[in-house]
């Protein structure tokens, strides 16, 4: 299968690879997917509790090139955004940016799930009353 240039570029030069201290109260961690499905994404964000701005984002992904690219792109996009802005990122935005084919849409769904899961974890740590468990974007599609 042919990959888009952007997927190849992210695969060859993934942004923000790594891990943040998951015990840090300002770090939210999202771990989504499952090994038997061939995709696992770990997305971490460090959020400034005063400004609610995401100051750092790191990822690690087990998955195909499109999954790696989706999570790499997600870290790029969330950095500098507020929590609310980051939560507004839709998987369809990722599909468009990376020109993902239909069989790879689940990769973008997983990336959206990872953002939501990480921020939900952060909110929980902050004792935020609004904290809700991460809801998969469109779980049925993957």
């Amino acid at each position: 299968m042919a990959y888009s240039d952007k997927v190849i570029e992210h695969y060859n030069n993934p942004r923000n690879v790594g891990s943040l201290d998951k015990k840090d109260p300002n770090v939210g961690t999202g771990l989504v997917g499952a090994p038997e499905c061939g995709d696992v994404m770990k997305l971490q964000m460090k959020v400034n509790p005063d400004t609610r701005i995401i100051e750092e984002a790191k990822f690690k992904t087990f998955g195909c090139g499109s999954a790696i690219a989706s999570s790499s792109l997600a870290t790029e996009w969330v950095k500098g955004k507020t929590v609310e802005e980051a939560l507004a990122i839709k998987n369809t935005d990722i599909v468009r940016e990376l020109s993902l084919p239909p069989v790879k849409i689940h990769c973008s769904v997983l990336a959206e799930d990872a953002i939501k899961a990480a921020l939900s974890d952060w909110k929980k740590k902050q004792g935020d009353a609004e904290a809700k468990p991460a809801e998969p974007a469109t779980a049925a599609s993957h």
Binding site: L31, V32, G33, A34, P35, E36, C37, V40, D113, A117, A134, P136, A139, A140, H142
Partner: peptide, 8 residues
């Protein structure tokens, strides 16, 4: 236990 495993 994987969170979303059931949905896949």
């Amino acid at each position: 236990t994987w969170q979303t495993a059931a949905e896949h």
